[in-house]
Amino acid sequence: MNGETRCREEGNPFLPHPARIVRTYPLTQDVKFFQIRFLNMDQALAFKYKPGQFAMISVLGAGEAPFCLSSPPSRPGLLEFCIRKAGSVTGALFDLKENAMIGVRGPYGNGFPIEQMAGRDILITIGGLGVAPLRSVLLYCLDNRDQFGKVSVLYGAKKPSEMIFREEYFALKERGDLECHLAVDADDTGSWTENVGVVTTLFPKLSKVNPENTYALVCGPPVMYKFVLREFVKLSIPKNQILMTLERRMKCGVGKCGHCAIDYIYTCLDGPVFTYWDVLHMRELI
């Protein structure tokens, strides 16, 4: 699956490449933004990725963990990540200041099939931190706007302060060339002007969907998938045009450590992007 985009490096694929944190700032209470640059310019240029792929980030001494690339490949040079504090590696990352050194290797995984998606309508459904991989694909579509049909975004978060890149998405609403609907489960500010309710309550707001021509993407917390998939199916979007990224524990990213195994596939090689059809015929996928 999409083997051509895997950079099969000569040498040792387990050695991280030194990189610096160019910028980092909090996005929500427990999510931070990281902008990263490889020390070695050749490495920066060699790092060619697709939206939906991920990288392994090392904080030496704390360990290594997988994170989706949040930046679009159409803006090369700097890599961006949205990272939630969850444990030791992410905790150590949160303690690092700008200009600190980390290690990065990748890109890994299949990514979204952007070649097949070209020319089609794109419907993106985001829940919470699901924005991490979907921001990459959305910005890629917008950077190559003429290559895609209708672009629609449905984005839900728990509350206004938890809506990652809130300003970016409010700005998108002003653009005339895409449709963007935002929702929070609960408004604790009293000043939220958009919808209140779970993300599936945004589906009725969508303008007419042409299902045969649509790629529908979803990423969010595990509980969300079932409900969003039901909406996609209601819209008659073909099962192999419904794409989602899934999370598994990963230790290597390159199909060796076994941690991400499901049935007879490795999420790190054959995923993390799967179609709804994959999910239906593979056990344990969601």
């Binding site: 001494g61 360990g63 290594e64 230790k251 060796k256 450590c257 076994g258 941690h259 195994a261």
Partner: peptide, 26 residues
């Protein structure tokens, strides 16, 4: 069976830090 885990050990007593691979089981 080939599964493994990965563990970082910090520098200690003049020795450099290291990243280890350890046998693991599903």
């Amino acid at each position: 069976c080939n599964c493994y885990n990965v563990l970082d050990k910090l520098a200690l007593g003049g020795k450099p830090g290291r990243r280890l691979r350890l046998w693991d089981s599903c």
